[in-house]
Each structure stands twice: as C-alpha cells, then as structure tokens.
Amino acid sequence: MESDGEKKKVTIKSSSFRLRSPSLNALRLQRIFDLFDKNGDGFITVEELSQALSRLGLNADLSDLKSTVESYIQPGNTGLNFDDFSSLHKTLDDSFFGGAEENDETSSPESAAADESDLAEAFKVFDENGDGFISARELQTVLKKLGLPEGGEMARVEKMIVSVDRNQDGRVDFFEFKNMMRTVVIPSS
C-alpha cells in the first residue's frame, strides 16, 4: 500500500525532464518531428501541428499557431522542415527555459522544482483517471493518441510497464515514472 509518506523528497542531481545530451535531444526531436509529420512528406504543416496538439489534449488557437509557425517556414515550402522545426524548438526552449540545457552544473532548487512540476504534468497526461498510477490500458490510450504502433499491441504495452515497474504491482507510480524518465537520459546497459 502506498501512502503520501511514500512521496518523500528525493534529491537527484540530474532529475531533468528535458534531455541534456545534444545527440539524444536530436533523436528525440526527430521522433517528435516524424510523429507530427503525419503524411511523411518531410514537412509539418500548421494543420498537422494543430492535429497533433489536439490529440495530446492541447487545443491551440489555429490563427495563433499559424502566425507563430509561419515565420519559421522557408519561402516556397508548405510547412516546417526538420531544420525549421529545430529552430522553432530552440527559440521556444530559450524563451520558456532560458536555454537552461547549457548550464547543467547550476542545478538550483528552483530548476529542480520546475523539473518536478514538468514531470508531474507529464504523469497526469498518462494517468487519465487520476488515481496516481499509470495502468497498461492508460499507457496504451496515450500511445494510440500519439499514433504510435506500440499502442496497437497490449503485449508490447505490458512489456513497457514491466520494464519500469519496480514493485511489480502491474502499474507505474510517480516514483517509477521519474526513474523511467531518467533512464531515457542515461540508458541502462
């Protein structure tokens, strides 16, 4: 039985939701680009971006989205190519996080609290019924919304759960979720 007491303060130096390794960041960004580029033509149109955000439950105003994104689309192109998308991502990262990825050494209590808050928000996206746990069914739902092939096979979803389910209760709690996010940054051998 897990209680509020289990949510003890755990201080981990590299508890960042955002990936700090440039090569891993590039891979993550390419994966996101591919997910958003629904028709696989190498461009993310404003419509594709809007649809992707909607599937994630983030409904952006289309005209606001259009005015923001269009300044990054190169003349003659139908949408953002990968370089444009990277530029947009970097600008947003600098605006919202102050380019914090560069100075990993200065991990302040404020940035640790912000990381914790980001993780809590991400956890809520998966934990649809708000019970404090991510079940295989909830994980499958999010994977399907993202259009990932893993969402179609419950056996693969269950394997994903088992791989991070430390206490083997068949579901992922917030502590296990945080551990999982750190293993994305530093892959275990």
Rank of each mutant, 00 (worst) to 15 (best):
R166M: 06
H89Y: 14
Q51F: 08
V172R: 02
G152K: 06
Q74L: 15
F82I: 15
E70V: 12
K144H: 05
S23Y: 05
D131T: 05
F174N: 06
G40W: 02
Q168E: 07
G98I: 10
R171E: 04
T45H: 02
N39T: 08
P187D: 09
L27Q: 10
K159V: 00
G42N: 04
S3E: 05
S95W: 06
D173K: 04
S86V: 14
A120P: 01
T45N: 02
L119G: 09
G132L: 01
T45V: 03
L56S: 07
G40P: 08
S50R: 00
A26C: 08
E2H: 06
Q51R: 11
S14I: 06
Q140N: 02
N129H: 08
P22H: 12
L27C: 13
M181T: 10
A136L: 00
S189T: 08
N39L: 10
D4G: 10
L35M: 15
S135D: 07
A26T: 10
T78C: 12
Q51C: 07
L24M: 08
K8D: 13
N81D: 15
E110V: 08
D131V: 08
L49S: 08
N81P: 14
L80P: 11
L92Y: 11
K178N: 04
D41S: 15
G170V: 01
R137E: 13
Q51H: 10
R55E: 05
L35R: 14
F126V: 05
L139G: 06
E48Y: 10
D118R: 13
S16A: 12
S163V: 00
S117K: 07
D165V: 00
S135T: 15
S16T: 09
I134N: 01
D165N: 00
N39V: 12
N81C: 13
N59D: 14
S95G: 11
I186A: 06
M1A: 03
N167Q: 05
N39D: 15
E153P: 00
D94T: 15
G79S: 11
T141E: 01
L58E: 14
T68S: 14
D127M: 03
G42K: 01
R182T: 10
M160F: 00
S16F: 12
F123K: 09
D104W: 04
G130V: 10
R20P: 03
G98D: 11
K144E: 11
F43W: 13
K38Q: 14
V164E: 01
